[in-house]
């Protein structure tokens, strides 16, 4: 991330990390989470779910900051994020 000016307490602030969970069966492929993810974490998956929609998949797991926006904008209760444990490798 580029900063316009470096915050004074940058060393002390720990950026939160999140892990995105997708409930593929519920997804109707509207793409709201993909379009409005502020960190561009998601993309359409090429595979279909049981209802014939393309659910999202995680493109950049390390970028998620657990803001929950995907969770709040999803009309289908199909995506949510949880806080990653501090020492976990988010890409794993």
């Amino acid at each position: 991330m580029k900063y316009w000016r470096v915050p004074l307490d940058m060393e002390e602030i720990e950026v939160s990390r999140g892990i995105v969970h997708i409930v593929e069966e519920r997804c109707k492929g509207c793409g709201y989470c993909i379009e409005y993810c502020p960190r561009d974490v998601l993309e359409f998956s090429p595979k279909y779910n049981a209802r014939g929609y393309h659910p999202p998949r995680v493109k950049r797991p390390e970028a998620c900051v657990n803001c929950h926006y995907c969770e709040t904008i999803c009309p289908d209760f199909a995506i949510y994020s949880v806080e990653a444990p501090p020492d976990a490798d988010p890409a794993a």
């Binding site: 509207c30 904008i73 009309p75």
Partner: peptide, 10 residues
């Protein structure tokens, strides 16, 4: 798909 009611409901 894309209906906003689900978001409002959530």
């Amino acid at each position: 798909p894309g209906c906003g009611i689900g978001t409002a409901f959530s």
